[in-house]
Design a protein around this nucleic acid. Sequence first.
DNA 1: GTTAGCACTCACCTCTTTCGAGTGCTAACA
DNA 2: TGTTAGCACTCGAAAGAGGTGAGTGCTAAC
Lengths: 343, 343
Amino acid sequence: MELDERKRIILHAIVKNYLETGEPVGSRTISKYTDLNLSSATIRNEMADLEEMGLILQPHTSAGRIPSDQGYRVYVDEMLRDKEKEVENMKEMLLDKEEKLENLLKQVAKTLAVDTNYATMISAPQIRKNKLKFIQISKVDDEHLLATIVIEGNVIKNKIITVEEVLDDATMLKLNILLNTRLDGLAVEDINLGLIAAVKQEAGIHSEIIGNVIDAAAESITADEDLQIYTSGTTNFFKYPELTDNAKASELLSTFEDTSDLSSIVENTLSAENGETGIQVYIGNETPVQAMKDCSVVTATYELGDGMKGTVGIIGPKRMDYDKVISTLKNMRHALDDLYKKE
Amino acid sequence: MELDERKRIILHAIVKNYLETGEPVGSRTISKYTDLNLSSATIRNEMADLEEMGLILQPHTSAGRIPSDQGYRVYVDEMLRDKEKEVENMKEMLLDKEEKLENLLKQVAKTLAVDTNYATMISAPQIRKNKLKFIQISKVDDEHLLATIVIEGNVIKNKIITVEEVLDDATMLKLNILLNTRLDGLAVEDINLGLIAAVKQEAGIHSEIIGNVIDAAAESITADEDLQIYTSGTTNFFKYPELTDNAKASELLSTFEDTSDLSSIVENTLSAENGETGIQVYIGNETPVQAMKDCSVVTATYELGDGMKGTVGIIGPKRMDYDKVISTLKNMRHALDDLYKKE
DNA sequence: GTTAGCACTCACCTCTTTCGAGTGCTAACA
DNA sequence: TGTTAGCACTCGAAAGAGGTGAGTGCTAAC
């Protein structure tokens, strides 16, 4: 059977109505809701067809219809094909930019949650192929050295190193020159055991300290194995009864306490080819997280300048307001882009 | 009326039984549960007395009794007076200590949550009266300087400063000496406008850079106005039906999304004189957070060596297993203490 | 192809009944 | 005087019984 124009309009009306009310939609409602001027009986016939096609379904015999996952999919695909929405001024939200990335991300998550009334998540940008830009050790006091490591993108790492012996200024200078000449500009794959041994040998009696510093440096440019993810608005789930009948709420919220489930969403999003819009929609069972099978997840990748890519996600009921969510995410992307360009 | 020995035993039995079952406790249950060898009728008489004293109450006429807030209080006070429990090996949990304080705290919160089956929170230690220990600027590249600031307790702060002009090594050295001689060991209240002006003047044409560095330093040693608080196990609430009937769950979980409510608990705990045990118990309406009026909150202060004090809290139903929670918290305190001493 | 009409279904609400755990009170007992 | 057995009573929870209404599928007529 084919999804002709009239069926499409009816499906659209069913989805839209269900998004608003959360209740199954009956034929009479559609008959009035659309301007097709068809009686409820005709609509019923069409609905029977749509059901046969797997686009809508009945929760029970004498109830109206609700969209199936596949029905949502048709609706969402249609929407994604739609013209670009104009970029609004979400930027302003971020303009009093926090100096720390962490705070910026938390702010984004919160803003989105408040804006959309859904739960949100954002992953810190994953830094790949990092190179050392600057490395230095300083004497904090007699027993402690401070290793400062700057990597591309001006990300800074520090490590305190405890030393037995007191180092004089000349030695410090020598070690610093050694570190910078030998390690500057290296990526993680360049730092191999051979190099480490060579540098250590050059350092002579201070090889242990140098070993510590190199370890710290290597650790810094290795991608964080535990991806930082911030969430917000998880209590918004309680606004949608279909997600919060007892056990479900618990299960759903649990996935937000631990990053492991969320990071599977991040991975999925980053690995998928998602065209120029950068938006991806997972409906029901399409989500990588089992506990979210009654939800929809809309994700977007964002990029902070030099190749640091992260993922923003909005998680809500399947009957989420896709239109709004998608345009909100687009705005956020643009805002983050602009924000970084100003630097 | 006086709380004689027999009444105390009965009260104890009622509380204990209620903690386990979550159901109102009847006289017959107590008659069997205790080894007083009293009939249910006698127990009923005693229970009537206890109710009159405000220690227990009936949810409705023909139900058993549940402890009132005051009843819990008697029970808990008795328990706090009890002998010190032996310190168990929670330490081991923390032994693979994360280098970052943040990760350690998250780990503590999680461990406690898993251990107790309640929600937990932990505040990052509040650092008071900070002094600068070490301050330095380094040239990352021609346009960027890196200011590194170490404050007491070996907490490290960094700030990237963008400069117009390229600074030569001699200038860098000069500025560094200036910074360290003038600012070393200063507390926040020592850094006043007069000092800043004096140092800036000494810096000559580079006063702007110095100004930036001093700003960064001042910011670093000022106590974080937004207290960091980590939580875990919030979904444990769902294990206690009395806390999760619909609206309550949402309200309760909301308080965990925002730190403002939680920080009032931290403040309360830190400001209270809580004796040598360092443990504090808030029952029902005693908690500083209205949304937790059906909960009990058990807090402990911990100290990481040099005066850095923070607060751990466990939030659960009023019928929480006080015995276990209190001893678990004590263990955690000891573990944290020991952990720091090893440094 | 569209529509009106009609019998049918079934979740949901309300009202009633039943059930049982638990109580308070009284009278008897040690 | 303290303890106990017995009994009538209370009231929430669970189970059952109608009633209601939104919505359906089917059929026959337009």
